[in-house]
Design a protein around this nucleic acid. Structure first.
Ligand SMILES: [Zn+2]
Ligand SMILES: [Zn+2]
Ligand SMILES: [Zn+2]
Ligand SMILES: [Zn+2]
Lengths: 143, 143
DNA sequence: ATGCAGTCTATAGTTACTATAGGGTCAAGC
DNA sequence: GCTTGACCCTATAGTAACTATAGACTGCAT
């Protein structure tokens, strides 16, 4: 219903996106190029706003641009089975979950090292000692 | 005690690092340039091995190279207070922990969207609908 | 008329690597 | 002596998703 046009600055504000990022999305073909004014200013409409909002919402959920691109392409086939969309989402969730596991592991290792250190000189620092202690000699290869 | 020299391939194997990565570390000044053979092959010694092992261990804990560089620089001042080291480690832990929080939040949002979808066409897909539903019109600015 | 915010293009920088091209070297087997 | 394959060398470009900078133009308010 809204047929108004607006500049890149307004679009940026309304979608909480930097101006340069919007131009970047256009340059990689993720956001369609808008009309231009007589003085070459970009003029966006509501569809651009919707598209960019969608992109940003996906990005805020951590989807990479490549997958966002795929999802957008899928919306051009509205009668297809939505399993493809769901699969992308589930795959992404798997990645997030395994990242959480990795980071949790890291955090506990690091926390352990940190709490071990009660201060002193750098030469005595338990964190450094701990980081340095293993594998101090290369394996002599049999060959 | 070990005064042997070895090639980049052996160093790579023993530290589980790719050859190109070792050269990269040298190029950015993180790993000292080793001696060369008459035919320009890099010849590493035990110190290189220790240094690279340390770098890789820090990397595997998620420390960025910039911080690893700082930590290494600090080891040149063994009589300083180790608080600087500890601070870097604690700052890094904070970042990891906040990443875990963010990702946990993301995962739960995404899980919610995914479980909402019971299949159907793409036009009906609950995940997409959910991703599209908010903010479908730009805010009319007062100005 | 002047100033400042907004817009334009093009290019380079960021992080931590990875990949490729195009070449030289070394050791083993025939 | 020659080939084959694994290893080494440099230099350059590509990756993800932007961010920063330079140099120039526009639009609007005072
Ligand atoms: Zn300490
Ligand atoms: Zn300590
Ligand atoms: Zn679905
Ligand atoms: Zn659905």
């Amino acid at each position: 219903m809204n047929t108004d046009y607006f500049t890149i600055g307004k679009l940026a504000k309304d979608t909480d996106t930097k101006v340069v990022t919007i131009r970047y999305y256009e340059s990689i073909g993720l956001l369609p190029a808008p009309l231009r004014t007589g003085h070459n200013y970009r003029l966006y409409n509501c569809d651009h706003f919707k598209r960019l909002s969608f992109i940003r919402r996906c990005r805020s959920l951590g989807f990479p641009l490549s997958q966002i691109r795929e999802i957008i392409a899928l919306t051009d086939q509205p009668d297809e089975d939505c399993q493809k969309v769901d699969k992308i989402a589930r795959g992404h969730l798997d990645i997030i979950e395994s990242k959480i596991q990795d980071l949790t592991q890291l955090a506990s290792e690091l926390r352990q090292k940190i709490t071990a250190c009660q201060g002193g000189t750098i030469a005595q620092c338990c964190i450094l000692k701990n980081l340095l202690k293993q594998n101090t000699t290369p394996i002599k290869s049999a060959s």
